[in-house]
Simulated scan of single mutants.
Amino acid sequence: MSIASSKQIKREKLLDQGVQMLMNQGYHGTGLKKILDTVKIPKGSFYNYFASKEDFAAEAINHYIEPFILRLNSHLHDPQVDGLTALKRYYGELISELEQSGYQGGCLLGNLMGEIGNTSEVCRHALITTIARYSHLQETALARAQRDGSVRTDRSAKSMADLLFNSWQGALLRMKIEQSVEPLQDCIETLLEDYFLEKR
């Protein structure tokens, strides 16, 4: 294995562990030493991978969203599925997984927006960029659904994608305190099965 590929593997391990700890303990509760000990990388080596803890958190934000983007993309690229159905299936999977996990974690983006969104410029920029990428994919799904006539056209696909993201984040917070997926189900049913639909 080359030095470059070995370094990349260790970097990925750091990010995997970082995402998990940021989800469970938050930015301020996540210590670099604990991450490094878990991944078995010497403390002094951290700065071979990341410039600072802020830079690490910003990279973790990007790392966190990738599986969600890949999953939604897989639904959108299914030729048998329209844009609205792709979103319904995607969110149905997320709701099922959150229920199985005991309502733990929520969304790293929402967690960090609340904790450090206005105190770390590096992380704020990473959050803005990541949310834009994620929302754009949902906008693509809604625009496709508008073209096939299933979603209303008096509102832009972008405005509906933004509403979907914002509503989902709020529903995740209620999920945590209520220990129930009902807020998530209500969010998706209200938007994807009613408000966004083209009225016949």
Score class of each variant (00 low, 15 high):
E66G: 07
V81I: 15
L72T: 00
Q17F: 06
G170I: 03
C107E: 14
L127A: 05
K33H: 11
P183D: 08
V19H: 07
Q8R: 14
S6A: 15
L172R: 04
F68T: 06
K13C: 08
H63E: 02
L112H: 03
Y27T: 00
E115A: 06
C187N: 09
G170E: 05
T119Q: 13
M21A: 14
F56K: 06
F68D: 04
A4Y: 14
G170S: 11
H63L: 00
G44A: 13
T119P: 04
L70C: 10
S156E: 01
L173R: 07
L15D: 01
L164S: 01
G105K: 12
F165C: 09
T119Y: 08
Q100E: 14
R200L: 13
G117R: 00
G102R: 08
K53L: 04
G105Q: 13
S2Y: 10
R71F: 02
H77W: 06
K40M: 12
G83I: 07
N48D: 15
L191G: 03
I35E: 01
Y134K: 08
G105Y: 11
L22S: 01
L184K: 04
K199F: 14
T140G: 00
G18M: 07
E115R: 01
C187Y: 07
T119A: 11
H77L: 11
I177D: 14
R152M: 10
S150W: 05
K176T: 13
I95E: 06
V122W: 01
E97L: 11
G44I: 09
C107W: 09
T190F: 15
R155L: 11
V181K: 10
M23Y: 06
S52W: 02
D16K: 05
L70W: 09
H77S: 12
K40A: 13
L70I: 08
C187M: 09
V39Q: 01
Q179C: 15
I9F: 09
Y90G: 00
D37P: 07
V39H: 06
L127T: 00
V122P: 02
V81Y: 08
H125P: 01
L127N: 01
E97R: 13
Q138Y: 00
R152G: 04
E99S: 10
E198K: 12
G110Q: 11
N111E: 07
D162M: 09
Y195P: 04
